[in-house]
Design a protein around this nucleic acid. Structure first.
Lengths: 196, 196, 196, 196
DNA sequence: GATGAATGAGGCTTCATTCAT
DNA sequence: GATGAATGAAGCCTCATTCAT
């Protein structure tokens, strides 16, 4: 039989990330994805059921490693809660540092996709959020974190990160991203008001 | 019931906010907007050049009052920087507290619209951001705020607020919004780490 | 407002009959129907939900008058059973005598459509068949017709008519159709075996 | 279970009959046929040039034995014309009595296929029809059959049989088919009108 | 022969926008 | 201004067929 040529499945996914990032999911055309992947239009449908399926796969690929890494942080007894917070932030940034297109898709399409297909959206997102929540909860119990409303705080943090990622992704530059990362850590930990 | 007063322009805008919120800008149909507004499809084009034009108007209507109110806060010598921060947060929440549909459009469509038509996007957004920046700058100079990177901080705050607004808008409830508001103020000012 | 120009709904239907007849339902293209009707492709969807909907309408238009006329025959006390049979046959032939395209669609697409969308298929078909059945039943009770199995006989007759209609429709010619009509009447009434 | 004996060609044909029957020729997918035949898609094209070719082969397989059997009837001097008619009807029913799928394909696809590819359609069909015609002609000359228009009568009979076969094939049951068979013989021979 | 990955032409349908009244 | 019928470009997806192994 005819063997698989190269890795079309991955090529298509990479192309989709770029096309979705540049034009947005709705304006992105399957034809453009296929062309970018050096693949025929029909081949896209050999590997994915439809356009939405591609986007779902992209988010699966984002949230699965994020969750798995966060789990390690959560379960690591060596780390202080201060460190755990820093590492959580690092995790998100590291996920996108070399991949601004992925960052754009992540920021721009998640809300839409979760609303449209909540059943199909990757479970790793929920797992990630719950694990983050558990870290905060333990940190509060340990008296290290302030007694914030965790469910609100976690959304706030993630939302803030998203906007920063997007801005960076429009003019990607690793140095900037590291500046951003440290700034975020600083004011998430210290807040805006100077200690007296 | 109040009789139709012939303010079709506003009826269409209100309808558009709801339809955009429910289906997203791209999936929203002009026909649905017209129906919701009790207006013929053609009438939509009497008042707006095209679909995008409606969305631009919605954002104009959001950012103009936000900017104007923020300017008052900025210029008010009576307010401490601590208060100014609180008021800034209140401003954003008050803008949406009775209008979850508006919140959803605000959160979901701004990035897309700014990217697609940066020239046409309301200037009040930039004015608002710059004014916020000036408040922070002065607060830092006054030694009240920590020396955060303002351009990063402002995006972070706004991003965090957006995600929270969206979550709330999916199950709108004024009490919740006020809880969220106070939580946000707390940890933006204090940070997550407890003072020793 | 813009008024309806001519009668596009009917134009489209007429065009569809011709295109369906020539190419068959499955190979028929909406574009060809639109062109034949001197109408834009989109206009087809102003009047019909989809391709199948057009075909359903065609069969509605065939079976509704057939049923209504047959009902008159059934209820007419002036007619002998011998006449009723002749009139039934005439009814079907008259329905198609000037319209070979309609005959082709009638013959070629009914089975498919009934199988695909039994719920949406016109009720007049069932009504027609039941009325025909009632005529035969009464004719048998009156001792005029042989005691054939009606449910079988009615299908046989209709099936035979269909094939004849199709052959005629491929080379339409009113004279032929009248020959066919009289032949059918003859052997349906007398059978193939000569009376001794 | 009998082990696979490697008769892919026949397996594919059998699978095609079932798939064509269930979905209709146009909606039938080569992939489904291949799956049903436990064969790879490509293998279908080892044995058949294309989809239409499969259908042509199915009809060849139907009409060839029909013709050959009818020829025997025609040439058999032992049989009365009365018997010849009965045997003709039996022939058609026997062809499908164990194979409702084949009946469905026979009824639903012949018109389409003959129209689309008259050149490629099996010659045995024409031979069958001509032989049937000859039987009737001789029966008329012998004064046994009524002087019907043979070319019309043969189409009528065949059309009637088709509709009955289809109805039966949708709910196959050998007993019913034998009832149908006898009914058909009865009224084809006697007609609907009772002898006075 | 056997396989199934790869292809790409083609069609149905949608829907923002236009325009005649 | 108001209307809604009419338009037609554009895109997702299907699937028969091909072909490299």
């Amino acid at each position: 039989m005819r063997l698989k040529e190269g890795n079309k499945e991955q090529d298509i996914l990479n192309a989709a990330v770029e096309i979705f990032a540049k034009h947005g999911y709705h304006k992105a055309k399957i034809r453009d994805i296929a062309e970018k992947a050096n693949v025929a239009v029909g081949s896209v449908y050999v590997y994915y059921n439809n356009k939405e399926d591609i986007l779902l796969k992209i988010f699966e690929n984002i949230w699965e490693p994020l969750y798995k890494e966060l789990k390690k942080i959560y379960e690591n007894p060596q780390l202080s809660f201060r460190q755990k917070f820093d590492y959580l932030i690092d995790l998100v940034f590291d996920c996108f540092i070399e991949e601004p297109y992925k960052a754009q898709v992540f920021v721009n399409e998640q809300n839409f996709l979760r609303k449209k297909s909540p059943k199909k959206f990757t479970n790793y997102y929920e797992l990630f959020m719950r694990t983050g929540e558990k870290i905060f909860k333990k940190g509060i119990e340990a008296g290290v974190y302030n007694e914030v409303d965790i469910s609100i705080f976690k959304r706030f943090i993630l939302g803030g990160l998203r906007d920063l990622l997007l801005e960076w992704a429009n003019k990607p530059n690793p140095t900037n991203l590291n500046n951003i990362r440290e700034s975020v850590k600083f004011f998430c930990k210290k807040g805006i008001l100077k200690k007296k």
